[in-house]
Write a protein that binds this DNA or RNA. Sequence first.
DNA 1: ATACATATATGAAACATTTCACGAAACACT
DNA 2: AGTGTTTCGTGAAATGTTTCATATATGTAT
Lengths: 328, 328
Amino acid sequence: MSKTNKLPTMKDVAVAAGVSLGTVSKVFNGIPVGAEYKNKVDAAAKMLGYQVNEYARGLRASKTNTIAVIVPNVIHPFYSTLADMCCNKLSEKGYRMLLATTSFDPQTEQQCIDMVQQNKVDGIIAITYNPELDVKEDIPFVIIDRKFHHRVPCVSSDNYAGGQLAAEKLVEKGCSNLLFLGISSHVPGEADKRNLGFASYCQTNNIKHTIHRVWDEDGFDDIKAFIDSSIKNGKFAYDGIFVSTDMLAIQVMDYLKKHDISIPEDVQVIGFDGIPKFGFDGYYCSTIKQPLDKMAATAIDILLNQEINSTPSLVCLPVEYCEGDTTK
Amino acid sequence: MSKTNKLPTMKDVAVAAGVSLGTVSKVFNGIPVGAEYKNKVDAAAKMLGYQVNEYARGLRASKTNTIAVIVPNVIHPFYSTLADMCCNKLSEKGYRMLLATTSFDPQTEQQCIDMVQQNKVDGIIAITYNPELDVKEDIPFVIIDRKFHHRVPCVSSDNYAGGQLAAEKLVEKGCSNLLFLGISSHVPGEADKRNLGFASYCQTNNIKHTIHRVWDEDGFDDIKAFIDSSIKNGKFAYDGIFVSTDMLAIQVMDYLKKHDISIPEDVQVIGFDGIPKFGFDGYYCSTIKQPLDKMAATAIDILLNQEINSTPSLVCLPVEYCEGDTTK
DNA sequence: ATACATATATGAAACATTTCACGAAACACT
DNA sequence: AGTGTTTCGTGAAATGTTTCATATATGTAT
């Protein structure tokens, strides 16, 4: 451990360099200054080991170099991977990440937003489901996966195309009687487009298909009941399923296996998200992978340039089919 | 969105309440003040929607209500779960979490520490592996899983007891020729005690056992070679394995299965960490579970009371055996 | 009723930075 | 040489808190 008495301030640097405070400030903020002065300041700063005090800066300039990331939790791979990527990309750009979790609770979501706004962060990236979030206008905001307000840009993967792609792949692999299985929240979001894309492909190409969506409060029990009712004489009524998330797909497949329905022989399954299998290179199931890295990068870009460019209101990034062992 | 012009300051509150600035400050800091004054201030604050500006406070009082959490990444369930719990517990206590990731890179680790110290956070919780980290003395610091400096308290699970427990369970389940498999870093940490506890139990109880540790740079290839050499005529030489982490256990089991060695019939396997199986209630393997929630809580407690109590230098929290389907 | 001790509200100073109006210096042009 | 213009360093003001020395009010004892 190094002993530390008191951190050097800009004033110390100014004295050591024999220049004024304003000049030191300019040097650290990249404002042009005579080369001779710049050198003196840099040398003095290095000698003293000066580091800018973010709190003084935050107070005066309302520029905190901090971006808040608000997600339901950081346990589910989807959120944790996104948070991880945000963290990396932000630190590359010289920003710090304030992370807050909401546990999907609308009230906590609002509290996080409030807390974070009070702290004058330079921007907010959020995945929230509170339908009536109150957001101040003066702080850059990007939301992921839910078009929420016409002034708040939304970044998502192309859920609609993903649904089409899933149907296309299932058909390509020989399925002819498709099923969509999904759990939806009452708060509409981009993810709802997965079944729409799926249905669109099937209609266009005249494929027999069924859409089964349940509300989140009914949850998995409803899905189980539906599966039960779809089994006649040990045979499952469908030969291809598109499940709205990988997590749900895993549970669905487990339930099917308990009924001696084998995957991918009897039914092929495609999920959505692209969660990598823990400990391996592959995936838990064949899946439509969301480009989390690009989503994080895009959200950050929009955030950091929100005033400069004309910001789009919705950005959909391309998804990708990833083969697992749940399709033939 | 609500329109916002300018956030109210303490001065505004003082004026609205008809009291002085100092009194307002006292009210918000819980310093005793006449009931009549307190009421006036509270009412005015509520009316104006006042929220304290953390940057001004951070500047003046060097009290930022922010704790930095530094982990290698937030993708691996061990780290992400820990981060999630820290986030929850910190927000319960009125703290915010600044999260930084290091990718295991010693240089990045040092940068994170520096960055975070410059920002005058109120404390740091870190999982780092840089052997010669330079830490300032004046900021509360707790490290997880690696006793690193006598002045920096370390919180870990009881790795030694975990090793003993793993051996005990394997023996209890009928194993008589045990194997420890682990990948170690050159930077010593608490996790190294897993094999020590394991060996201790075996010696004390006179159990035949083998310890096989490899260095991280050799990685899994070395493990594979060892497994290959332990298979004679399709029979694996050991009937019980304790693997240093669940993640490695998964990979080991996959490799064993490829050699037609079945688990738990031919070999029983116990891992370490307690990573829950994605999408299910259970675990990827029978495992020694680290009490991540208690570790987070303890780290935070120590951090927040570091000056008050005499802080311990090492806290080991009890582990727990969790049954998976890799033991009989 | 006076003096003294105690409790508590007050307001200015300090925290480390950015910004801005000002002035000095350098330069070009007539 | 004198004037006008531009460039750029300077130092004071401002940011919103907390803290501390001071002032005021309250209560007790003589």
